[in-house]
Structure formats: C-alpha cells, structure tokens
Amino acid sequence: MIPSLPRPAWLRGATACYLAAFLVFLFLPLVVVGVFAFNDAPYPAPPWHGFTLDWFRGNEAAGRTGLFQDEELLGSIWTSFEVAVWVTLLSVAVGTTNAFLLERFRFRGQQLLSVLILVPLVIPGVILGISILAFASRLAGLAENWFGWEAEFLRPGLPLVVLGQFSFMATIATLTISARLRRFDRTLEEAALNLGASRAAVFRTILVPYLAPALVGSAAICFIMSFADFNTTLMLVGADAPLTVMMYGRMREGASPVLNAVSLFLMVASALLALSLLRLSQKRNDVSAPPAA
C-alpha cells in the first residue's frame, strides 16, 4: 500500500523480499555472462578456475582464440555496425518527415495514414522478414525477365536486412519525433517569421534545436534495436551475418567463453551509450528549462 497508509510489517517485509528477488532475477543472467568471460576454462561453466584474459587476447600456447583474434566475430560486429548506421539514418529521416506530415498538415486520408504508420509494430518480425524477402525476390525476378538486370541487392543480404529493420523502426522514430513536435509552441515560429526570418532560418535555428532531443533519442533507440534485432534479420540475412545471427549460430553449436567476451563488450558499449544519453538529456533539461512565468 501507499506510504501514507499504515502497512503491516509482514507486507513491508514481503515487498522488500520480492523487490530483492526480482532484481536478482533481472541481473543474474547478465552478471553470469560477464563473470564467465574471465574464467580460465574452455567452457563457460562452474567451477571457477581462476581469472584470465585469454578469451579476449587469445592464448596460442593453450590453443585459445580470443575475441580480438576471432575475425569472424569481429567482422560480424562491423557488419552489425554498418547495418545499424543505415537503419538509423533512414529511420530518423523518414520519422522526421512523417512527424511533420502528421502534425503540420491536414489532408484527406490522414487518419488512415496515422493508423497505417503504427501497423508495422504489430506485425511479428518474422513475418515482416519473410514478406519482404518474398516481395524482393519477385522484383528481382521481374527485373531479370524484363530487362535482363541482375538485381543482386534484392537477394538475401545486407541491403534487405537494412530495409527489413527500417520497415518497423521508422514507426518508432515517427512516434518519438512527432510526440515532441506536437508539444512545440508555434508562436515561437510565428514570432520569428514576423521578425523577417526565412522559413529555412526558422527551421534551422528554432525547429531543429527544439527537436534535437527526440532526434538523438530515436537515433539511439534505432541503433541499439538494430544491433539487437534477430527475428527480421534472420529471415533476410545472406552470406554476411550480423552479430546476433552469428552469435545464435555459435550458441547452437556449443558454448565458448568467447561469446561471453563479445557479450560483455556489447553490455559495456550499450551502458556507455545509455549513460551518455542520460547525461545529454539532463544537460539539455537544465539549459532549456522554461523560465518561470
């Protein structure tokens, strides 16, 4: 119950116990992944054999390949990075145009369009993947039959992975950016126009700075989600596997502490990104806090 009401001791005790158990449940898998990246044994399992950095640096004498020599894994990190950059750029760009379309214009069919924009989020990722795969392959077939083009980018591979992830992340970017645009005080824009600013100047000096937190935030979400996406990616992947698909394949084959090492790298990277975002948003709030009326 809420603090203003008397709570029996057992209820308070039970609440505290549940909270503790929940936090253990939440963090145990991550802690275990991190800890076994440093275990001096060829298999990520107890007992503890002592601390080692072999799973990062490798150890030729012991025949161990570390993360830094595992070209396949490093390559897949780079692949994921490239995909994530493209997905982020596309999603934020289309998210921004969508936000203006929904918030600044009134046209026939707008209601329908605003519902359609949400649809990609309720289609299971696997189905987004296979439908884009099937459609792209149809287009490739047509291009070949009609014009004799060899449309390689329409075959399973990274361009399709980018498009597949973009197909639903554009919705997330649209929601984030249009939510902020909706709260924009349009009198600021009108004042600037009245004072003789051009539309381009208004856009650059007022709208873009105002939207910046939403742009940065949605970019970070798209980037992280692109790195983590599995369902859609699995259906569209070609010869070059992004990190999640590569890890999945290795996890099915068997366990190796190298996977723990690469996971730890992912955790540290996303923690850093989350922290810097938090920092940024706090700073921005301090600066852009509205003056007391």
Partner: peptide, 21 residues
C-alpha cells in the same frame, strides 16, 4: 537497464545458468 542488452546476450546468460553443467 537489462533491456538495453540484446535478447541474444540475455538468453546466453540463462543457458549458462540452467544447462546441466
């Protein structure tokens, strides 16, 4: 916080916790 990490990593954690060894 844990949801900033991909599902693959979290599943790896459960596999290390739960498998026979």
């Amino acid at each position: 916080v844990p949801f900033w990490v991909s599902e693959t990593v979290r599943t790896l954690g459960w596999m290390i916790l739960l498998r026979e060894s």
